[in-house]
Design a protein around this nucleic acid. Structure first.
Lengths: 142, 142
DNA sequence: AAAGATTGATATCTCAATCTTG
DNA sequence: CAAGATTGAGATATCAATCTTT
C-alpha cells in the first residue's frame, strides 16, 4: 500500500498534465465546481471539497481565472464571500481531462487487477477512506 | 483508491513528524541506509532507493547531517561519489520512528480492514505497485 | 469576536544547469 | 563526453498573520 500510495499520485499527475494541461489539484477543483449548483461554490466550500487549504484554493482559482477556466463572483448574500464558477471553457477542459484521467487510471491500475478482485479492493479501500476522512483517530501517541 | 491515495500520506506524515520528529522522506532515507551494508550508500543509489530526486537527496542528507543522524564520507574507490552513512543516533532515531509509524499504520489502516481481506488487499496492491514501479506503461495518450 | 478570503513566509520537491572526476 | 553530486530557479502546498464583513 505504501508503494502504491507514494508512486501512483505523481504518475497520474504527469499523465494529466501532459495529456490535458491540468494538474491533479486543478482537475479536482474544476470537477467539484462542475458538480455544484450553477457550477459555482464559495471558496471555503471549494477548499473543503477538494481537501486543499484555503490559501492554496485562493491561488489555484486565481491561476485558473487567468487561464479563462473559472470566474470569480462576489456573493450577493454575504459580502465576505467570493464564489468561484466554471466558464464554458472550464467545462470543456474538464470533459477532455476526464477522458485522459480515466484512461490513465485504467492503464496504470485497472489493467493489472483481475476483475473479480476489483470489487473487493474497492470495498476495502472505501472503508479505509471513510475512516481516514471522518478521522476515527485516537492519536498515534496515545 | 484515489481517496486513500490523497488523504493517507499527509496523515501518516503528520503522525511521524509529531511522534518521532521525522518526515516520511527522512524516515525512508534512514531506513534505506540502515538496510545497506555498513549502513552506507552512494547518494545516487540512495536516491534511487527512496524514489526521491538526486537534488532532494542532497538537501535531505545535508539536513540529516546537521542533526547528527548521518555522516557523509568521500568514496575511496571513486572521487566523484559521496556516501551517506547513518550514525548511531540515526539508527536509534529510526528504531523509535519505526514504532510510531507501525502504530500509525495500524490505527489508520489495519484496524478498519477485516483480517481476511488484508491478504487479498495486499496481493492486489502488490501487483499494482509492481507495474507502477517497473512502468508497464503504454502512454496514456495512445 | 468569528467567518471568509487573501497575503507573507516557509517547507518539500523537481528540472535544468553546473562543476568535478572517470 | 558519461556519471556523480550539487546549486539555482520555480512549482505545489501549508501555517500564521491580516483585512474585511457579519
Amino acid at each position: 500500500m505504501m508503494r502504491v500510495v507514494t508512486v501512483l499520485p505523481p504518475q497520474l499527475d504527469t499523465d494529466l498534465v501532459r495529456g490535458a494541461g491540468l494538474t491533479s489539484s486543478e482537475y479536482t477543483t474544476l470537477m467539484r465546481l462542475s458538480e455544484a449548483r450553477d457550477h459555482e461554490l464559495r471558496m471555503t466550500d471549494l477548499a473543503r471539497a477538494t481537501g486543499l487549504s484555503a490559501s492554496r484554493t485562493t491561488r489555484l482559482v486565481e491561476d485558473l481565472h487567468g487561464r479563462g477556466l473559472v470566474t470569480k463572483v462576489a456573493s450577493a448574500a454575504d459580502a465576505r464571500s467570493t464564489r468561484a464558477r466554471t466558464t464554458a471553457e472550464g467545462m470543456a477542459m474538464l470533459r477532455s481531462a476526464r477522458q485522459v484521467h480515466l484512461l490513465s487510471v485504467r492503464h496504470r491500475v485497472m489493467d493489472h487487477i483481475d476483475s473479480s478482485s476489483v470489487e473487493r479492493l474497492a470495498a476495502a479501500l472505501s472503508i479505509v477512506a471513510h475512516h481516514l476522512e471522518t478521522g476515527s483517530r485516537r492519536g498515534t501517541t496515545e
